[in-house]
Computed example of a mutant assay.
Amino acid sequence: MSARTGPRRPRHPTTGRKPVTTRLTPRVRRSVLTLVTGAATALLLSVTSATAAPLDQPDDSGILAEPVDVYMKDHPSDSGMQPHSFGPLHESPDIKVCPTAEECATSQNPIVGQRNYIFVTLRNPGPYGTGATETGRIEVYRSTPGGSAAWRSDWTQIGWMQVPVSAGSTTVTIPWDNVPGPGHFCLATRWVSPNDPMTFEAPEISVSALHNNNIAWRNVDSVELVAGGQAQIRPYSIRNALTWANRNSLVFSQVGAPLNTAGGRLVADLGPTLYQRWLQGGKAGKGIRDVGRNQIEIVEPGQASLDNLMLNANEKLALSLSFTATTVTKEPIAVRVTQFGPNSLGAERADLGGVRYDVKVAAR
């Protein structure tokens, strides 16, 4: 491998060793990519960029002599450092869902049963590259909304595209056909290329996204309410991606105006299994009220938590969130539900990700 100049990639956060990268020969790489390409011919894939266009065949140009670093932002302030200190990780501004092939101003919930479009922004260079053009594959996946999603068991691929990324920003457009109901998902994107490898992969996506600028994650859901109308229900999953049992928390916080500005009410239905775990953990928490039938009202959405929730090894439990409101408001309201617990790097209480719910209340 040719010597590289410029910023160096970080060492592995656990072992302290430099990442080891396995390079495929052109012949092997051609064979693998040909198989992938054949499986994806049914997808309509397009690229929108002033400098990039779709490739008919995967690039086979080999290894570059200069360092390459293509990245996606985890946070608006993210510059591609691995890791960084910005949060939350699960609201990437470089992933957007739109109902048409023309990019929309803000990401929207996908419309069930029809074609939607996912727009992914790739940036070149990051702090470890020089801006050289790199050809790689952008992959998009979906999962149930919630906290610590495990790679790969919790993720279903939506589509992928082979694309060259030059200096500047390149927007890739990937169609999403036959969106399944109820239409609420976490999305993750992965940039895979021979000259810009990921440093390592963790069991949970929260750690992988923090330590790989090739991975981005977006869990943002819109909640459209009618004042005095029916509740809107949103699915949520709490997950232990590790191989040992441990205790976790669900923490509720607010962005913008408080939910009570709209006379809002938020109730978590834990289901029988998770509710029993909460009882066994001493009904720990704050800013909450047990209303029976496995349900917990989040009385103070800006500073509430459900704590001491025991999860078995590799366990995933489902719950649901019910939103209602009584008053029309034009102020932006958002509620974050974030899972905290141990991670694979040894932290006892790490941010494992979650979902931001953007709430709008219209007149009846």
Rank of each mutant, 00 (worst) to 15 (best):
Y71C: 02
P67Y: 01
L259V: 09
R277L: 14
V355W: 01
V97P: 09
V179E: 12
V120W: 04
P19T: 06
E102H: 14
G159V: 04
G228F: 11
P197F: 03
G354R: 06
D56F: 05
K316N: 10
V192C: 00
T170Q: 02
M310I: 01
V207E: 05
L279A: 06
M161I: 15
I174L: 12
D154I: 01
A105E: 14
R349M: 09
A149P: 00
V328C: 10
S148E: 13
R142Q: 11
S169E: 08
H211A: 07
S237F: 02
D269M: 05
N248H: 14
P342V: 05
N312S: 14
P76R: 11
Q82I: 06
A53M: 02
E139T: 13
A65G: 06
H12V: 12
K360H: 08
G113D: 15
A167R: 11
T144C: 00
T51H: 04
G353F: 07
R247S: 13
A209D: 04
K283D: 11
Y141N: 04
T135D: 06
F185K: 09
K283N: 11
I205F: 08
V192E: 02
Q303R: 15
T100H: 03
A40H: 10
L266F: 00
V163W: 01
T51S: 14
G264W: 02
F185S: 02
S148T: 03
F340C: 08
Q280I: 03
F86M: 10
R289F: 02
R336N: 11
L242C: 07
F252K: 00
S208G: 07
Y357Q: 05
